[in-house]
Design a protein around this nucleic acid. Sequence first.
DNA 1: CACGTTGATGCACAAATATGCAAATTTATC
DNA 2: GATAAATTTGCATATTTGTGCATCAACGTG
Lengths: 250, 250
Amino acid sequence: MPDNMILEERHNFILEQININNKVMASDLSQRLDVSIDTIRRDLKYLEKTGKLLKVHGGAVSPDFHFPYQQQEVYAKIEKRQIAKKTLRLINDGMTILLGGGTVMLELARIIPENLKGVIFTVSPLVALEIAQRSRVNVILLSGRLERDCYICTGSAVISQLSEIRADLCLLGTNGLSIKGGLTEGDWEVAQIKKAMLKSSEKAAVLCISEKLGSIQKMKICTLGHLNYLITESDPKELGMYSKMIKSIF
Amino acid sequence: MPDNMILEERHNFILEQININNKVMASDLSQRLDVSIDTIRRDLKYLEKTGKLLKVHGGAVSPDFHFPYQQQEVYAKIEKRQIAKKTLRLINDGMTILLGGGTVMLELARIIPENLKGVIFTVSPLVALEIAQRSRVNVILLSGRLERDCYICTGSAVISQLSEIRADLCLLGTNGLSIKGGLTEGDWEVAQIKKAMLKSSEKAAVLCISEKLGSIQKMKICTLGHLNYLITESDPKELGMYSKMIKSIF
DNA sequence: CACGTTGATGCACAAATATGCAAATTTATC
DNA sequence: GATAAATTTGCATATTTGTGCATCAACGTG
């Protein structure tokens, strides 16, 4: 490392490091630049005042490091809304549709056409309420034990009710989707429900923000070959590797 | 996983995980980030305070799932809360309880003891979610067609499920209660459900703000003699005329 | 040249922060 | 209801910070 740097050089170096690593540690910098920790601290203080970084205990981070979550929160919401919008293309009057739970599904619930004809079954009270609030479509909630974490109904009662249903289309959100692992899920109870939902439907679509593509969870639900549609917010062209397994991607 | 993460990085990582899985477990995080469980707990506490997640036993969940429908302006909320409080006296560990819908019932749902043992059946998704959100009691939602106006599940499916249940106590809100008319209800579908609920329960209690006492609706559910308890917000002494028909009034 | 001013730097020490540990309590699960 | 797991609380410890002060070099100015 360059010895005998002057103030400005140090500042530049620090910003460079932040650009590379998203963070710097005061003690580390002190060592690498061979100045006292105090000097580094003064550097950081100055750079913070000019908005170039954000001081934290032990060093500093990139100024946008602290925000990404409100941003990403909103961002993810936009993505989910995009997915929901694309999904509407699959939904037509007269269909019997099976809906899962999760945030993506909630976004879909919010834009279900007000005068859709047909029947919607769901295991998610949140989804059911959201739809019933806005639309005149028939919403049928499948009963069961309400899971505390994800607020969907699980248990044998749901499974047995599902076995009596023959839906045209099943729409599922997911946490795990990958070429190798197929459709996967973290919770055992939920996995059972999803399996049963797929079995009760003519066709199946998975809604998944692209950020989650490639992730694998503990419980396997099915291979990609069993899915008819994959819907993400990004351009289908970018998901070429999935196109061998899933017929329609959009 | 990057070793030696600083506080901000851990926070980011945790939120990332929550974004992907909707929940994280403290012990798991402690292991993956190689810090003590205490540190993780402090992280979670901080992130909860800033609203980025919700702490639950064992970890945290995404705040997205937090139920948004609560706390609209309800009429006579104070009275309804008083009724709910009184009703708690009827509820003990080990009971199987059947809950109806309506605003009084929602107030009750909000104060169901966090660690109540037993099972709660309900036809109201709102009540179910409210309870599941706060309490660890088993909540079982009875399925059916979701009524758009009152948000409770109706239809033959509910009736048939109710016929398979033997509850210790049934709690109903009401719009119509009078000496002459008994327990009455405006909606036909809802009346059917309430009848079935009463039939499935050992004992029955009606929750009713005193202002509504004396009103009669179109559909008859039962006579006052079938009810074991009447719970209102006012002093039972003032309701003497009901005491010939209903055993316990409070 | 001598002198004062200024800005950068390092040092010392008290206060604050991050983290882990252990005991006591609460909660979950069987 | 007993046992295991999770949580709370108080405390100990090691860094890290903030602050005041001393040093030193650079730079005018009289």
